[in-house]
Amino acid sequence: MSIESSQSLGTGLGEDHVTGLFAAVQRLQNEHAYILELLEEMEVQAVQIGKASTTAQDWSRLQHLRLWTIGVMQELEAHAKWEDGVLLPFLVSYFHLQESPSLAPSLWMMEKEHELAVEYVECFMREFHKLRPASSRERMWKTASLLLQACYILKSHIEKEEKLVFPLVEQVLTDVDYLFL
């Protein structure tokens, strides 16, 4: 499965936009489930570093983990690009028009969480490139543990995002229901 960036929701409340909003919510749920699976696998792999019978096996696992991480980050970037380009602009635009309390602080905080997780991944990559096959297991484990922190932050980020976005979407749909009564 791959995450692609497409579609626009606009800011109107016509039937096409409601259908688009349903599709966007479904896409958000599907992509979050997929990303959570990838993060779970990343955690499983990271925890295994330092537990192999030889340092060479740990090194091999760490190399695999690095490649896995690159793929996960590509998927995460595609997802974030879609959210930032389609879903969040719609919600911000809609609720600005409704003069609701600003979403900016919550969105800003979520963006900072995402950035922090990416920093942990980048730190993992830098530390990985300092390692050698003969590096100590402790150094390998410390390097892998950076990804565990990134996974924790990203999973928490997804949970918070859903707690913010789903009620907003519910409000939009409630407003649409009232519009057509």
Rank of each mutant, 00 (worst) to 15 (best):
F95C: 07
S5G: 08
Q57A: 11
M125W: 11
E113P: 02
A33E: 05
S100G: 08
L154G: 07
C151I: 01
L76S: 05
P89R: 05
L131P: 00
Q7V: 01
E4G: 13
T11N: 14
M110G: 04
T19E: 14
S145A: 10
E161G: 04
S60G: 11
M42D: 08
V44E: 11
K112R: 13
E41N: 14
Q45N: 10
Y94H: 03
A150E: 00
L38V: 00
A117L: 09
L28I: 01
Q57N: 10
S136Y: 10
C123A: 15
L148T: 00
V25Q: 09
G12Y: 08
L9M: 02
L179H: 09
V25C: 08
H114P: 04
L168K: 05
L179V: 01
V18P: 06
P101Q: 07
L39D: 01
T174C: 10
S100L: 11
P101F: 05
T54C: 11
D58W: 05
M73Q: 14
D84W: 04
T143D: 01
H157F: 06
H64F: 11
C151R: 06
K160L: 07
L9S: 01
T19V: 13
Q63N: 10
A24F: 02
Q98E: 15
R61H: 13
I3Q: 06
F90P: 03
S8P: 06
S156D: 13
H32D: 15
R126I: 07
H96P: 10
G12V: 04
Q7D: 07
W82F: 02
V176M: 07
Y152N: 12
V121C: 05
R126G: 08
E170W: 12
M110W: 05
Q63M: 05
G71N: 14
L131G: 01
L87Q: 00
L131M: 05
A23E: 14
E37L: 10
